[in-house]
Write a protein that binds this DNA or RNA. Sequence first.
DNA 1: AGAAACAGTTGCAAAATACAACTATACATA
DNA 2: TATGTATAGTTGTATTTTGCAACTGTTTCT
Lengths: 147, 147
Amino acid sequence: MKNLDTSQRLRETTRLLIRNLGFLDRSEAVCCGITLTQCHTIVETGRRKQISVNELSELLNLDKSTVSRTVEQLVNNDILVRQPDLSDRRYVVLQLTQKGEVLFGTIEQRMAVYFTEIIEEIPKEKREQVIESLQLFSEAIHKKRCC
Amino acid sequence: MKNLDTSQRLRETTRLLIRNLGFLDRSEAVCCGITLTQCHTIVETGRRKQISVNELSELLNLDKSTVSRTVEQLVNNDILVRQPDLSDRRYVVLQLTQKGEVLFGTIEQRMAVYFTEIIEEIPKEKREQVIESLQLFSEAIHKKRCC
DNA sequence: AGAAACAGTTGCAAAATACAACTATACATA
DNA sequence: TATGTATAGTTGTATTTTGCAACTGTTTCT
């Protein structure tokens, strides 16, 4: 019975959290005049330095056709370079251009500032606890993917 | 300097969390053969018993036109009833039909089970901490809505 | 009474995404 | 080595999801 109550509260909290995270996620992109998916693509590419359409597709949980077209846009905007992977020519190697690196840097910095501000809203002594908890929760969801 | 590191870790964790929550959120709807927005609409209506298009629009962070059409679909599927609000005829009063109540119940129960499973993945002694932390985080984001 | 504000609907358009068919490459094995 | 199978990526097509703007009807404020 205790668990039911706890899970109910967790659900409520999650509901709110999802809503707030939605704002956060959107702000990441809107500020830079690109779409959310483009933004995620840039960030993931920037972090790995090299990435394939397929990896992006899994990472972003999008169909590979969607990713392929997003990449196309970014290539046309001189943000990504797309080359065949010489070691396995089925793949393409995606990398940021110089312009892409700049944009990536801007996004990263903006987010760093933003998250610093968020951290400061959390009482000092709770900060580590919050991070740990988010991890625990995240993993718990991951293990229990329903359906 | 410490804060920068902490915020970096928080960002990483959030990134993962968003991904996992995406699965969770989608599973809520997919299981019942309705769209995510329809599902949210049903749940919010079920909780409040009565709700207006406008309230839904704020709650779900969607344009009122989008909500209006979603409601239209649900009315056509005999899940919602839509009546003019007699105390202020600009508003409509939305309520679940009997069929809607059943569906709402199904969703609620499924989610209750699901969240119970998630809770069980989290060590007992950490559960309260996790809920508290999610709240803290959620509020922190809310206070610092950027842009 | 008239103006301003607000809820909801509808026309129109776009943005985002998926599915399926196709191409090119790689790999396994017979 | 030939051939069948698996895989990555692209493209055609369709659907879904959503938002903006214009409009209607209602209320509220002055």
